[in-house]
Design a binder for these strands. Structure first.
Lengths: 230, 230
DNA sequence: ACGCCCTTGTGAACACGCGCACAAAGTGGG
DNA sequence: CCCACTTTGTGCGCGTGTTCACAAGGGCGT
């Protein structure tokens, strides 16, 4: 019997749109670097590989930031998207697992530059404990709870072997982390209110293999109503 | 005026289903390792974090491989999913870019074990050319075309900096690669018939940041019709 | 000041995927 | 042999997302 909308203040942005905003943002920053001042939905759509109507609808969820007949002001749109995504503030991130993947993540430029700060690198292996990676010392996994609380870590990155992932996740959640990015090939169990996103190489490969097989099968001409051949 | 279905032989599997099959497969292999012979949709759904009806519908696209009142035979289902995903044959993969990420990918267990074979590791940086990574020598990027043709590479993995990604992609495509897995933060342009999948750390982080901000905002009680608190 | 042209913002139809709920089908016990 | 129980396979309604197509709006040349 509860009313379907307890909060009329529902400026909810569709999940699919949220997933595309970072792509637009990156394209806009590239335009900004080249000194471009305005851009049309058509042009931005082309560089980001989406339909222009979809792009306009996506942007319309943030407000009416375009000018008809002209397009969108690049800098202003960058600011609006950044704000909407929460990139105008800094988020502390802790990475657990300093193998090749953890190192790759730590050295990844996208971290420090825009809105994210690596608060700690942690590992259970004593062999890497003293190492300095991306300018940060590798700490012991047992300091996880301290680090999370002291550094106000809200995003935890799991780059451990599969066997350790769930336990690390549990400790993250217990310590107060509410967003987890998981690179280990396991399904993580978390309580409601905690967001988990999964990045899984082997799943991606298997999806590609599926489509490869389809192409190899008798069905040569694919592209069902594709964007048309070049 | 073309009829909507020129090919009645459309055993097309929904894309969403394809994306979940690898997850089921992994769970099934874990059950198999533990010696479990059969599993119900309810149980398998729980371990993979999906709805049991969805799981049954997914599996029904492959055929009627379950037994009512009993469940699914683990080994048989593993075989059927593997076959559907094209994992009963080996796919040759070439990885370009042998930085931390490339090394992480090369050392990733999921490769050699099931259906994938690393045909080559390539890089443009002469400093890493002699190195041996995951038992393979690092070759020069200029051998890309030769390797692709000789080793029948059908899947190309791009783990280069963003600036180099499009060119590597073009060379892959030109040499005959029809599936690309891209880790560089750029939108790749490919002709029709080539599949591209993107893995982008910074996008994932930004999506998490968005939800973090939502939680931090006034809107405390989230979980709109969630699975219910534990 | 007027009108042409360009681009945005969105209404409406359509496609896709999800999950409930139930009939069909097979098992095992008595 | 029959019945009660378990589990699959799926029809159907719902919600989300995508795309087309167009009216509304703003700039710019004359």
């Amino acid at each position: 019997m509860t009313p379907p909308e307890p909060r009329p203040r529902d400026r909810g942005i569709p999940e699919a749109t949220v997933a595309r905003l970072p792509v637009y943002l990156r394209a806009l920053q590239a335009l900004d670097d080249r000194g471009i001042l305005t851009v049309s939905s058509e042009h931005l759509a082309e560089t980001t590989g989406v339909n222009s109507a979809k792009l306009r609808k996506d942007l319309s969820h943030l407000g009416s930031y375009g000018t008809r007949g002209v397009g969108y002001e690049v800098e202003y749109l960058i600011y609006q998207i950044s704000r909407e995504l929460g990139l105008t503030q800094d988020w502390s991130v802790a990475i657990v697992g300093v193998g090749n993947l953890g190192r790759a993540l730590a050295n990844y430029g996208g971290f420090g530059t825009r809105g994210f700060r690596i608060a700690a690198l942690l590992d259970a292996d004593t062999a890497v404990l003293g190492d300095t990676v991306a300018g940060l010392p590798v700490g012991h996994i047992d300091t996880l709870e301290d680090v999370v609380r002291k550094e106000k870590v809200s995003i935890g990155v799991i780059a451990t072997p599969a066997a350790a992932a769930q336990e690390v996740c549990d400790r993250f959640v217990e310590a107060g982390v509410t967003s987890v990015l998981n690179f280990a090939p396991v399904v993580l169990n978390v309580p409601p209110g905690v967001d988990v996103r999964k990045v899984d190489l082997s799943i991606e490969l298997q999806i590609l293999a599926f489509h490869e097989q389809r192409k190899a099968d008798g069905y040569a001409g694919l592209d069902p109503f594709g964007k048309g051949p070049a």
